[in-house]
């Protein structure tokens, strides 16, 4: 469902152009889970941004279900993100002025797919039932990340893209969140691409790849 072919991306820096991704090829099938590992600055977040259509590659192509993202206009890419992708960030990026329920349904409402039964189910599965009138600042870090995962899953996306989803949590809470993420992914049948530097996060994924200096390596190399 997701195909990246020959992706190259360069950023300008005061010291000259910096090649972040170099001829990267990657495929992800429907329902598959993949962990993309690498050190800081290895280019994994850039790859995630390209996969989400937040940015465009210098060369190569990103295709989602056969649709080439660079051929789409900005509003069309935004629409694709709204309807078919779910995004989870390390910093959660919840809306502080919206309640737990409103945060959870934000993307679903943007996509015009607000389903109350599904929202209630998600709230219960995330352990946030009874907290739906609270605001993000009244939640713990673990609860906030669970809410962010719920927001990404609420519009029933085909692909979930997660950037260091447990990077801000302690190990115990991170394990809980990860387990929950895995369960919900299995239940919903959507594909998952996680970028992380943690082997604990990568371990339960169906496939693991490593990114180093902008090039994709087999794990262990």
């Amino acid at each position: 469902m997701l195909r990246l072919s020959g992706i190259t991306k360069t950023y300008p820096t005061p010291q000259g152009p910096l090649r972040v991704l170099d001829s990267v090829d990657l495929e992800l099938a429907a329902g598959e889970s993949l962990a993309l590992m690498g050190e800081s600055g290895s280019g994994k977040s850039t790859l995630l941004h390209l996969a989400a259509g937040l940015d465009l590659p210098d060369s190569g192509s990103v295709e989602l279900d056969g649709q080439r993202l660079s051929a789409l206009s900005e509003p069309a890419r935004a629409s694709l993100r709204r309807h078919r992708l779910g995004l989870v960030f390390q910093q959660f990026h919840l809306v502080p002025s919206l309640s737990v329920r409103d945060n959870l349904t934000l993307q679903a409402r943007l996509a015009g797919r607000d389903d109350r039964a599904w929202t209630d189910h998600l709230l219960a599965r995330l352990g946030l039932d009874g907290l739906d009138d609270r605001y993000p600042e009244q939640l713990s870090g673990g609860q906030q990340q669970r809410l962010a995962i719920g927001r990404a899953l609420a519009p029933r996306p085909q692909l979930l893209l997660a950037d260091e989803p447990t990077g801000n949590l302690d190990e115990a809470v991170a394990d809980q969140v990860l387990a929950l993420l895995q369960t919900l992914i299995d239940e919903s049948g959507c594909a998952l691409l996680v970028v992380t530097h943690s082997t604990r996060v990568a371990a339960p994924m169906g496939r693991r790849l490593r990114l180093a200096r902008g090039r994709l390596l087999e794990p262990g190399r």
Binding site: A52, L54, E74, P75, A78, S79, L80, R81, R82, H83, L85, L87, F89, H93, V95, S97, L106, Q107, L110, A111, R151
Partner: peptide, 15 residues
Amino acid sequence: GLLRTLRALGVPGRT
């Protein structure tokens, strides 16, 4: 931050 989150969640810049 909210504007960037909304853009990431699929709100076009023009909207």
